[in-house]
Design a protein around this nucleic acid. Structure first.
Lengths: 223, 223
DNA sequence: ACCTGAACACCGTTCAAGT
DNA sequence: ACCTGAACACCGTTCAAGT
């Protein structure tokens, strides 16, 4: 039993950025369930309710967290004149962010944040589409297809890592399917060993390559 | 003020299927926040704790819900010898399930359920890959790419519909981006009108078509 | 894998009062 | 968009007792 000693925090000493950092640290360490006002207060060495001076609700905090993850992904990114290299770079940045912050990525990557770093991402992706030769509606549709492909895969990866971490299962590998009556599922049964050995990074690499090839085909057919 | 009258439910009169149906009805009507033991009890005309005789936790109920959604998607599906038609059919079935049950789809579609209907889906998709000419590891990787593409898009769609429903925003259209300094984001600024008019069904159709074309190319190159 | 009501530890949020 | 502690309505889960 240690005595809880806490000196009153000075007026204005808590910032939104500090709160978002604390929230991310909690989720990285112990998953989504660790993100409570009580735990945040302890992490910030303040009262749990102090967070309400900076965010009106838990949802608003999550929106800020989504923007923060976008910011992490984009940090240091510099566009080039090679659209395919740029879209590959941006995709792996999202993937690595999900890998570093799985619980937060699973929770926020699929929601539209309408925030500043999301806008920066939109700008860079649309720029790459323009370099590829796409304009107007076609460029916007491809932005959506690209974003859906990358963010869907990254957040699924985050969800798998987060649930694996809480269930103490090995990372990156799918669980084995164990049908009660294998003869009813011949293809799944035959693929059992390969299903048990899937590496998600390789699947993402394949998915990205297929999308970019299809995009290149679309572009050359149009241009 | 109406008097709450509830007769004791008979032993064995509550089934897992009935509970899952009630859970889905609650989420369809009022979103994820409506899925509480208290609301479930009211829906089942039973004690909230009766659910614990059939599921050991809320998480286990969600796993059963995930399986139920897979079952809804597959209902009436009959495979053919046209792999491209089959993969298109299965993809739109997932999409329409997300459209009919957005909150439940957003919550469960991205998690691995390891359940019977998920196994049925794996079997049908691997069968289509086999018809396309893929075997072994290559078939399993393509199963993963396909599933990630379709489920990522469907659950993102569900999440958007669910948040639009709770926020009373029009369905199927993206919110307008409103940058504070438009000149910093020239491509996003120029695409503003098109971004505001995106139809997600069309984006999904495009994404699916691009994946299937890329798959066809892979297959013909290999075979 | 029977159904119920009371109880427990917790959670997000509000608000009057302190600096 | 200041920080705190008490309070409120709720939530998932447990458990002894009823059928």
């Amino acid at each position: 039993m240690t005595e809880e000693i806490r000196t009153r925090r000075k007026r204005g000493s808590i910032t939104r950025a500090e709160i978002v950092d604390a929230a991310l640290r909690l989720m990285d360490g112990e998953g989504e369930s660790a993100l409570t006002f009580s735990r945040l207060g302890a992490e910030l060495k303040s009262s749990p309710t102090a967070v309400y001076r900076h965010f009106t609700s838990r949802d608003e905090l999550l929106e800020a967290l989504a923007d923060h993850l976008d910011g992490i992904s984009l940090a240091g990114y510099v566009p080039t004149d090679d659209w395919r290299a740029d879209l590959t770079d941006l995709a792996w940045r999202a993937w690595h962010t999900a890998e570093a912050h799985p619980a937060a990525a699973a929770l926020t990557l699929l929601t539209v944040a309408n925030s500043i770093n999301e806008l920066r991402a939109v700008e860079w992706i649309l720029r790459a589409m323009a370099v590829a030769g796409l304009r107007g509606r076609a460029a916007v549709v491809q932005y959506q297809v690209y974003a859906q492909t990358v963010l869907g895969a990254a957040s699924a990866y985050g969800a798998r890592l987060a649930s694996a971490r809480t269930r103490e299962v090995a990372d990156g590998w799918i669980q084995v399917y164990a049908p009660t009556d294998p003869s009813q599922y011949p293809h799944a049964e035959a693929a059992k060993a390969d299903l048990a050995m899937i590496n998600y990074r390789e699947v993402f690499a394949q998915q990205l390559e297929m999308y970019l090839s299809a995009l290149e085909l679309t572009v050359t057919r149009t241009g």
